[in-house]
Amino acid sequence: MIHHVADMDHRPPPGMGGWMPVEATIVNIQQENFNTRTFTLRFVDESLCESYRFEPGQFNMLFVPGVGEAAISISSSPYQIGAMDHTIRMVGAVTRGIDRIGVGGVVGVRGPFGRGWPLNKLAGKDVIILGGGIGLAPLRPLIHWLLRHREQCRRVVLLYGCRSPEDRLYAAELEAWSGRSDLDVLVTVDNADEHWTGPVGVVTNLLQRIKVNADQTVVFVCGPRVLNRVAAWNFLQLHVPPAQVYVSLERNMNCGFGRCGHCQYGKHFVCRDGPVFCFADIADIFAKEEI
C-alpha cells in the first residue's frame, strides 16, 4: 500500500519534460556557509514564471551547457511566484559550474520532478520537522507552506542540526522563525563557538527536549544518509506510527522521471516515487546497506 498521496500533482509543464532544458537567469546568490549558496532563478520566459508551480519537496534538474545536470531540490516558498531558490553545495562539476555562471547568467532547468511532502496528512496533527545540514533546503518550502496553512495542524516544531553556527542555512530566516509563537524552533550544532548559547550535539538529541505526542504526530526528516536512518529509528522508538514518518532521500539522478535507472532503491525510482518516502513504504529496505 502506498501511504504517500500528495495533494498536488505538479509535473513538468509542456516542453520541460524532454531533454532540452529551459533557460533561467540567476538573479541572486546568497552565501549560506563556506561551500553552500542559495541561487535565485527566474525563467527567461515570462509566461513560465507565472505558470510554473511545484510542491514542497520536489526538485529540478539544473543544467550547465556542456557540463551536465544535477538534481537540486527547490528551496523557496511554493507561494513565491516568478522566482525560485535552489540551495546548492559546491561538491561537483555541475554545482561549481552554476556558481561560475554567476548573477545575470543563464542555467537550464527541467522539472519539477518527484513527489514532495504529503501536505494532506497533517490535518489536526503535531508536525515535527527534522533537518540536518543542507537537508533543511527541501524542508524550507514545507515550512513556508505550513506557516501559510498554520490552522490545519496543531504544534509545529523545527529541529535543525548542523556542524557549527556558521554552517546554518537561512540564518536570518531561522532567527525570524524562532521569534514566532506558532513555530517552535530548536537548533543544535556539533561545534559551538563562544557566542553560541544553544544546544550542542546531534540533532536527534533535541527530541529529549520536546514532548512527542506519538500517534498524533507527523514527522518530516531530511539529512545525510546516516541521520535519516537514526532519526527515523528514534521516532519509531517514540511510537510514532511508520505511516506518519516521511524521509527525503538523495540518490544519483540522471533523467528525473524514472527511466534511466540510476536512482533505483528497491522497487522505487527515487526521482519519481520520491524523493520523499513514507517510512512504511520503505521499511523493508531502509535499514539495509547498498540497496
Binding site: V64, G66, V67, G68, A93, R96, G97
Partner: peptide, 9 residues
C-alpha cells in the same frame, strides 16, 4: 581538453 574548457568532469 574540451571538458576542461567548460569545467566538465
Amino acid at each position: 581538453v574540451s571538458a576542461l574548457l567548460v569545467g566538465r568532469r
